[in-house]
Every structure is written in structure tokens, then in C-alpha cells.
Nucleic acid binder design. Sequence first.
RNA 1: GCCCCCGUAGCUCAGUGGACAGAGCGGCGGACUUCUAAUCCGUUGGCCGCAGGUUCGAGUCCUGCCGGGGGCGCCA
Length: 559
Amino acid sequence: MIKDELTTLIEKAIKKAQRKGDLPKYESPPVTVERPKQAAYGDYSTNIALQSARLARKSPMDIAAAIVKRLPKADFIGLVDIAHPGFINFTLDAGWLARQVEAIRAAGERWGNVDIGQGRRVQVEYGSANPTGPLHVGFGRNVVIGDTLANVLAAAGYQVQREYYVNDAGTQIQLFGRSLYARYAQALGREAELPENGYRGQYIVDWAQEIAAMAGDKYLRMDYEEAVQALADLGIREKALGSVRADCERLGIIYDHWFSERSLYTDGTFDHVMSLLRQGDHLELREGAVWFKAAELGGDKDEVLIRSTGEPGYFASDIAYHYDKFITRGFDWVIDVWGADHQGHVPRMKAMMRALGLDPERLTLLIYQLVTLKEAGEDVRLSKRAGTMVRLSEVLDDVGPDAVRFFLLANAIDSQMDFDLTLAREQSQENPVYYVQYAHARIASILRHAAEQGWTAERYADGDVSLLNHPSELTLIRKMLELPEIVEMAARNLAPHHLPHYAQDLAATFHAFYRDCRVVSSDPADEELTKARLKLVEASKITLARVLGLMGVSAPERM
RNA sequence: GCCCCCGUAGCUCAGUGGACAGAGCGGCGGACUUCUAAUCCGUUGGCCGCAGGUUCGAGUCCUGCCGGGGGCGCCA
């Protein structure tokens, strides 16, 4: 990447300046190259002269001059200038810029890839909710963040696995089974009451009726506990996960692996991990329960693993689960995408890593702030058990997957967001996603028009991109060249919101080019320029499609 | 009480310690006989919550306060 090459050149220049005596000998701070906010300051800029002033005991302006004097030549550097109080600004060479159009076309759908992952294996686990009902819209943020991040990390050179953790064990599942049983019995005309704190949602009634219609009174004839277990299983596998899978598919999300919590208990992982913890002296029996001594490992308090009833809790499963991720499956890095309501669990997870002898840095608990749902400005209270929830699928019906993904992606994960259903329905037409998609459709339209005029790809294959020197053309190329940097930034900071912002920026730059530069000309004198511009337009299409693809948003050929 | 996140234009939000703080929406005024006007151009609009501190330089880092959200269970 240009940014890195530039950094290297500047480092070399500093060393050389020191060798030649232009600069005193001192340990240079790390060179950082950034993109200035103002276009007038060029494409890249470094503040290294300012950083070094004290160490070199020279004025920043003098240091900058010494560095620039010794800067090695490079084909991509057009202009280097020094600006007060000591910035060194670089402007890319116009000819080099134009040539990058060919580089983008050659890279095709790989354009934007970087290699900071170097093939390291990372697992992104997201979406994992109790499979006891349909996904509600708040969870949309979880799956959209997780899935987009997985895309970004794959583009950044990681080997990525997408996983859904199926919580098919534990007390909530019991409760779910009992609730389903009650509704099932009712569906068959029996008297039955929902358990206390049972799941009250209408969807349980619907599912119970479907099961009754299919299986008749089969479960009533079984032993109650057996029937509850069987119904819970059926409900999870056929109903709940089915609806999760369907919602995800509409959002373009396909998991590589669905991991069963219960399998940890049936395959011996859980017992093995418990004995490891016991050997490490991380467990303690207190008041009939087994505690994990998290406090002495940096947790904020000790945690119950196995309740006095003998039932393991959720955290116990989590330890076994992460043992499986790191030790059994050997992931280098694991990212769990969690809502802010789980933020308090971070310290105990880190403690768990230490107890297993693993570097806590290898586990990232990515916390996003919750989505508050509104209906015409009013808060909507959400509870799966109480049955008051807005299903993700309903919002997908109303607004469409592209707008939902774009909207949920646009904010930094640290900022809480309101999702006003009324507003979303009304304003879905104003969603910026259409602005970006429109740019793509417009490009497709230009290429169609060109083809109709006889400008097939073969006919402009010999186009000379060095003819591209209009300011709007060069601005567009510059913007496209940012893509790898955006991918890198999004990957390093686990910050997918950079993508929609960049996408809008890119679309705006394209629209400006479209305004200023006629692509397909009927004037024979413009034939060569038309060819070059068609290549530019093609590169724009590649770039736009790539960023949309990373966001999981479709890139339409027409609108 | 303690812990985490946020507070930037009327609204929704960007802003990797740098150079005059940006975008979209909204408001106002313009541009379709031309490859898609779901577009473009102009304009309006800011004690970056408040108070200190660190730094050559703070919207960005630190401390305190105020306001909003989330958490602190033998629930998940």
C-alpha cells in the first residue's frame, strides 16, 4: 500500500540525512503517514518533523527540509512540499494515478484486499441468541456487525470462520420446552397452564399448533419431562433456528458452523475443562455450589459455575466452549460479538482465558451498544418472554434487507442508536443506501449505453488510461485508491461503520465525475478519451461493488 | 455506591493527537432536449455537555462534575 511505501521512504530519508550530517543522530519516533482532511494539503502527510523537533533540537521546518532533501525518488510521488509549522505533504503523481485504473481493473473483485491477517485463523461468533423465538430487530445489529466484520477480516487476509452458538442447554431451554408443551396441550383441547415466567409470545402458540397438527397427541402420551425435552429440541431445531436461519439468509448471512452448547456436555469437553480448572486450583466449593475464582485472575468477582442444584450455569458452558475454540479447534483469534447488556461479563471471560493458560488478547469481546426501538417517537419495550417484540423479519418486510444492513452499519458500534419503526418505514426511501446503489446502477447504465453504441469491452481494451487527467477523473481515482486503507482501518479497529461512510463518499465522487465528464462520446475525435473513460467507469464499478459487497448490500444493475 | 458506552449543526451521525471541525437529512434558492434528476450546484446553520490538566498542538488523551443508555443474580 502507498501509505506503507511512503512510510518506508521517509524512514530511509531520515537515516540518510543523519548519515550525511543534515540531521543530528537521534532515535526517530515512529513515522506515521495520514491523509490530510484538506485536499489542499495533498494526498498524504506526515508530522514526523514536528514529532522530532525536541529530539533533534532543530526547528520542525528545518527537519522537514532535511528529510525532503534526502527523500528517495518514487514514481508515485508527484509533489512534496513543506507546510508550516512542519508538515511534509505529498501529492500523488497524476500519471501514476491514471495508471492505477488498470491496476484496479486487473485486481477485479480482489480490489481492496490487504494482508494484515497473513492467513491467521480467526473466528467471529455473532448472533448467538437463545434459540427460543424469532430474532428481534435489536439482534439485527449483532448479526450485521458480525457478518460485515467477518467480510472485512477476510478481505484483510484472515482466514475467517463464522459461527453461531446454539444455546440448546440450560434452564431457559427447559422453560421454553414447558411453555411449548402447555401451548401444545392447549392446541389439542387440554387444560394447561403456562409455567411461571413462561414464554408468552404468540409465536409459541403458532408453533405449538403446527406441531399439534403434524404430530397429533404423540407428546401427550409421553412422560412429561421427556416430552418437554423433545418439544424443546423440536422447537429449537425446526422452529426457532429455522426462523433465525431464514432471517439471516434474507440479510445475506450464511454461517460456516452452528455449534451446539449441549455437545459440550455429551462429548466430554465440559468434564475435561472442569477437571483442568480443578487441577489449576481455580475452583472452590461454597454453599453447595462450585465457584470459579475469577477475582484472583483479574475478574471483578468470583462466579458460580455449578449451582447447588447441580445444574451448570451459562458461564460454565462458556468456559468449555472457549476451550473448544482455542485448544480443540486452534483458532488464533476469537471475536465474540456481544450487546452492551453483556458488557459486565468481559472481566470474567478474561479471567477464564488466564485460567486456561491462554493469552487474554486472543479473545476479543466486541461490545456494541444496544438499539432502542421506537414507534413514532415512543419507546417500544422488548421482551421475548412477554411476547412484546418486533421481529427482524417484519422490519425486513417493511424496509428491505439492503436498507436494514446499511442503517445498522452506519453508526460506530460504541454509539447507541434509535430505530424508529415508523420513521424507518417512512424514510426508507431516503436511506443513503439507495444513493450508493444508484451510483452503481448509473455506471451499469453507462456501460450498457456504451455497448449499444458499439463500445464493447474488447473495443476499449486498448484504451490508454494516461489520457485521464481531468480533475474530476483524478479525484475519482484517488477516492478509489482509498479502499484498501478503509479495509485496513475497519479491520484493525473492528469498526465496520467506515464502510458505509466511504461508500457514500465514493458514490458522491462518482456522481461529480459524471456531472463533469461525458463518458461515451459520438465525436470521433474523442474516441481515445471514451475508451480511457470506459476503463475508469469500469474500475469505479469494481470499487463500488466491492464496498457494497463487504457491507453485504446488493449492487443493482438498474434502479 | 461501583463498572462500561455515549454527549459534535434544528435532526441523525462522521471525525486513526495535528493545519480554517465535516456529511446526510431538514430549511431556502437554482440545474433535466444530453451516458439514469433515486442526481448535481449554491446557501443556511457549531460556547465539539461543563470545568480543570497533559502536550509545540486536544473534538480526540487524563481527572472531576452534569446529562442519557447499559450492567453489577446459585438468569441468560
